[in-house]
Amino acid sequence: MSTPDRTANAPPLDQPAFARLPRDTGGPVFAEPWQAQAFAMAVRLSAAGWFTWQEWAQALGEQLRLAAARGEPDDGSHYYEHWLAALEQLVLAKGLSNREMLRERKEQWAEAYRLTPHGQPVELSAAMHGDHAHARVLGN
């Protein structure tokens, strides 16, 4: 409990420094459901020991740094996009899934949405006929 004041560790000045601060009047915690799901997955995986919170902070910090390096304006509104990128990156780094599976599953979900009548709950099975899931996906 003896962490010193770390003001000496000033971040580099190459950011769009002195940009105006975004304001926040206490709106909803999550702007969209996917943000809440991504948030909860990171918390659960860390709680289950798949990565430490220190690793998480490093991964998220890295995504924020990359976004700044790409010159993306960071006013906090894209925060959960960086959160999701950090989560995917850690999931891959820890071998919990792989890039191909993520890509393929994303396509299956898109297909499930396309095949499900409006108003019906969208289930992955809509895009997976029997055991061979890809037949329908490739057909589009």
Binding site: W34, A38, R44, L84, L96, M101, A110, Y113, R114
Partner: peptide, 30 residues
Amino acid sequence: HSDVPSDLTLRVKALESLLVEKGLVDPAAL
């Protein structure tokens, strides 16, 4: 038919469904 949601939503759904299948996260806990 249902509108295909944003790329971000699809990425989250992909990740979640894979992690749930592997028993790594429980939807109720989320």
